[in-house]
């Protein structure tokens, strides 16, 4: 049984320049203990998709009527779309779902100690007493590898290094024992050596706590090292999804292939770097047909410019939305 099911999620933002489609008919599901990598360039809608699971998008967001997000908890399914009052939303915001943000400096309040922020959320989401919350917070800080946790508990975010702040963020997100953890580019702002430490830590924690993780990143290397399955997004559309080995070794969609070719590889320094040609179009000028056709090097005809490609099976649990697959040709 899955932990969360997302069906036909479509989300538009009302702006002065008109309606902007940020997420277009996205569906996926995640099992408990499974790690899904959500990959795409900036502007591809990956963060907006993840934030929809907690209904964290700003007030000008309009969800389509077909959008459905179901969270399967021990005491029955929760329809996230129908939650409206802030009090009802607590289950999705910090209760069953926690989120780690990209910039750990910006996500801690600067004028409160790390400890008081950790305790505050435990008091909201659990029925712990203040001293129990304090004890658990220190234990969690210790668990994520912060030395001298009880001193760190009383410090402010600016007193810590970037890596330590991100560890504290992880400790805070996990202290409520969420079923689902959304990690939005959690290692992008960190140095490679610290990134490797944080990735290791997250892997250990999945084994220990068994929660599902949605790992948002633009770095396919990080996905290869962490995820069980991958979903690739472009301009709000999900264009390919499947098990991590399948997608990285046998990418079907020309965009996924482009992303992999653009990545500088250490084992072959002679391979020239191949950029994906062109720039991501402005969301105000969404291309007709396949959203990727303006940059695609493998267009097969007018069908790419006019018809939206549907999903095709391209392997075991591996699906791709590209006209090439329907033609029976390997992209």
């Amino acid at each position: 049984m899955s932990l969360i099911d997302v069906e036909n999620l479509t989300l538009q933002f009302k702006t002065d320049e008109g309606l902007i489609t940020a997420v277009d008919n996205v569906s996926f599901s995640l099992a408990p203990g499974e790690v899904m990598g959500l990959v795409g360039e900036s502007g591809s809608g990956k963060s907006v998709t993840a934030k929809s699971l907690m209904k964290l998008n700003p007030g000008n967001a309009v969800y389509s009527r077909e959008s459905k997000i179901t969270l399967h908890l021990d005491d029955g399914p929760v329809d996230v779309m129908s939650l409206n009052r802030p009090r009802d939303m607590e289950v999705a915001r910090g209760g069953a779902i926690s989120m780690i943000f990209q910039e750990p400096m910006a996500s801690f309040a600067p004028a409160m100690t790390i400890g008081s922020q950790m305790v505050e959320q435990l008091l909201i989401h659990t029925d712990m007493s203040k001293s129990q919350a304090r004890e658990l917070s220190i234990e969690m800080l210790d668990r994520v590898g912060i030395s001298d946790a009880s001193t760190r508990f009383g410090q402010y975010a600016f007193e810590m290094s970037g890596g330590m702040r991100q560890r504290a963020m992880i400790a805070m997100a996990l202290s409520t024992k969420p079923k689902l953890l959304i990690a939005d580019e959690p290692t992008t702002a960190l140095d490679v050596t610290i990134q490797a430490q944080v990735i290791d830590l997250m892997k250990d924690l999945v084994d220990e706590f068994g929660m599902g993780i949605i790992f948002i990143t633009h770095d396919l290397g990080v996905v290869a090292q962490t995820a069980d399955k991958v979903a690739v997004m472009y301009l709000g559309k999900m264009i390919e999804q499947g098990p991590v080995r399948e997608v990285i070794r046998n990418p079907y969609h020309p965009y996924t292939q482009g992303l992999i070719d653009a990545l500088p590889q250490l084992d072959d320094l002679d391979k020239p770097l191949m950029p994906v040609p062109g720039d991501i179009p402005s969301p105000l000028e969404r291309p007709e047909g396949c959203v990727f056709h303006t940059r695609c090097g493998k267009i097969i005809g007018d069908i790419c410019r006019t018809a939206v490609p549907s999903w095709a099976d391209t392997g075991e649990n591996h699906r791709t939305a590209c006209h090439l697959c329907h033609e029976g040709r390997h992209a």
């Binding site: 490679v192 050596t193 290397g221 290869a224 990545l263 590889q265 250490l266």
Partner: peptide, 18 residues
């Protein structure tokens, strides 16, 4: 070098950590 995440999913945990 070894901290750079490899694109090969089977390389997991092989990196020498600092």
């Amino acid at each position: 070098f070894s901290a750079i995440p490899s694109l090969d999913p089977d390389d997991r945990g092989k990196a020498q950590k600092l």
